[in-house]
């Protein structure tokens, strides 16, 4: 026997049988299920969370449609489309971004809450919590999108040219983008471990970015320098793709690139998140 290299004890079952682990451990799938149920519970018991998330998209929806519906359409506005029909896809994208930011904020909450310290001491895959966070926020953005659609159709009379299937596809696209962007914010949360930078970003960056995009006015109707910014603003492309689906107007070619880019963002961010999350507290 080599004296220099300590070898692990011969029998892993050395502990007395009365104190051997009571349970066999859980699969990653079960871990994700249990942890998703956990974070969903705070969503269910705290409806304020969803209401708060709906605030910005819904206020914008009502304010803009009320303000601009009385004004004539700008020169490059698509023909035969009401302002409500035009702006709703942008509201859905706004909702997607807000929910995505909340993915990161939720993770930071978990880190502060103490539960993460507990989970680290358990024989589970740490990234289960990240996936659970992501699933929870997908559920959250879905609920919010449904509320927005119900308000838009029921109260404001949203009736886009695309049929129910096209409208559902447009909602689905924003949910997919929300899920993907959510991973970026989960990665940010795992590295920064503070919610303020993300919340500030959502507050300070998202609103101007929405205005400097095709969200509320066609890009061609923006002043030249704003139009130039809007052209490279990824939000423009996300909104155009969503809008093309819902309104059944040209531009659906942007859907596939939007999905591919979202997918890449999700994969890269998830990897970064897993690495960042593994760092000790």
């Amino acid at each position: 026997m080599t004296a220099t290299t300590p070898t692990p004890p011969a029998s892993p079952a050395a502990p007395a049988s009365s104190t051997s682990p009571a349970w066999k451990g859980s699969s990653p799938l079960l871990q994700i299920r249990v942890l998703t149920a956990r974070s969903m519970r705070s969503l269910a018991t705290d409806p304020g969370v969803i209401l708060f998330g709906l605030l910005q998209p819904v206020v914008i929806l009502f304010v803009l449609t009320q303000v601009f519906s009385k004004m004539g359409p700008p020169p490059h506005f698509p023909a035969g489309v009401s302002y409500l029909d035009y702006v709703l896809p942008a509201v859905l994208v706004d909702n997607a971004i807000q929910a995505a930011v909340q993915s990161g904020v939720g993770l930071v909450d978990d880190l502060k809450n103490g539960i993460v310290a507990r989970l680290r001491s358990l024989p589970i895959a740490p990234s289960s919590l990240l996936v659970a966070r992501s699933m929870t926020n997908l559920a959250r953005s879905t609920v919010q999108a449904v509320v927005i659609m119900v308000l838009a159709i029921g109260v404001l009379g949203y009736s886009p040219r695309g049929g129910p299937a096209e409208v559902a596809a447009s909602v689905g696209l924003t949910l997919f983008m929300s899920w993907a962007l959510g991973w970026a914010f989960i990665a940010a949360g795992a590295w920064l471990r503070r919610a303020e930078p993300m919340q500030n970003l959502a507050l300070v960056a998202v609103l101007p970015l929405m205005f400097v995009s095709s969200a509320y006015v066609p890009v061609a109707d923006l002043p030249a320098w704003l139009a130039a910014v809007a052209q490279v603003n990824p939000l423009t492309h996300a909104i155009d793709a969503t809008r093309a689906l819902a309104l059944d107007i040209p531009g659906a070619g942007a859907v596939l690139p939007a999905m591919v880019i979202s997918g890449v963002v999700a994969i890269v961010s998830a990897a970064l998140a897993a690495v960042g999350f593994r760092r000790p507290m």
Partner: peptide, 20 residues
């Protein structure tokens, strides 16, 4: 290190479930 959002009982159940 417990989840402040969950009840005491649910905290313990969560851990037991994660242990299998």
């Amino acid at each position: 290190s417990v989840d402040g959002q969950l009840s005491g009982r649910d905290n313990l159940i969560l851990i037991a479930r994660l242990l299998g």
